[in-house]
């Protein structure tokens, strides 16, 4: 008799909803047959991990023109291995345990840069950034390049014990890692904390 039940906006849903309050107030001692079949139906239709996955409505096209020019090198980048041994890696967060992250840990630098620069705003880009970061690369927010610090141990007898040089990955032109000029000054605030 409550006027709200007569409101066409709430009908007939409200009446159906009100019925579900009964088992809450007076729980059945034993599951009645219709409850059993509802429960079984729910089990049958149980959502799985695909149902719970992140929705993807709009897929952005690749962010930069695909580098298929003949001027781009075919062979992989040759650099001193930046792969750090398992034990000395940063404490594992939950991303590192996912299969995609594990696959990316085996990717060449080439592939990681490709994913990073071409799949803007995606989970894949995020993981590629994490992997590059794990390998010691740092992302410069100003010029949008990844940089790597090379430390070369000098033989004894020299004034300095080591020589530091920086490399950056040239994603815009040569698709190669190049040495930064002597004028390069490292400033922590220019780099993204991954």
């Amino acid at each position: 008799e409550n006027p709200v039940f007569k409101n066409p906006l709430f009908s007939p849903g409200l009446a159906y909803w009100a019925q579900t309050k009964r088992p809450l107030l007076q729980p059945f001692e034993k599951m009645p047959p219709d409850m059993v079949s509802q429960l079984e139906s729910s089990l049958l239709n149980c959502p799985d991990s695909l149902d719970a996955d992140t929705p993807k409505l709009y897929q952005a096209p690749l962010s930069l023109p695909h580098p298929t020019s003949i001027f781009f090198p075919n062979e992989p980048i040759r650099l001193v291995s930046t792969e750090t041994p398992e034990e000395s890696r940063p404490a594992r967060d939950f991303y590192s345990r996912t299969s995609l992250a594990r696959i990316m840990s085996k990717f060449d630098l080439d592939t990681l840069f490709m994913v990073f620069y071409h799949y803007q705003g995606t989970y894949e880009q995020f993981l590629a950034a994490k992997e590059l970061s794990n390998r010691g690369w740092q992302f410069n927010k100003i010029n949008r390049c990844w940089l790597f610090k090379e430390v070369e141990k000098l033989p004894p007898g020299n004034e300095k014990s080591e020589e530091v040089s920086w490399r950056y990955f040239d994603y815009q032109k040569s698709w190669l890692a190049r040495r930064c000029g002597d004028e390069f000054v490292y400033r922590q605030e220019d780099f993204e904390k991954i």
Binding site: C46, P47, D48, S49, L50, A52, D53, T54, A91, R92, D93, F94, Y95, R97, T98, S99, L100, Q120, G121, T122, Y123, Q125, F126, L127, A129, K141, E192
Partner: peptide, 28 residues
Amino acid sequence: RRSRVLDTFQSPWVETSRCEVEPRFFVP
């Protein structure tokens, strides 16, 4: 080392944990 599992939790049941799910992430 304790690793978090709730952030990549697929489903309460093994049978419905068909694939990994995309966890939260943030791209600057």
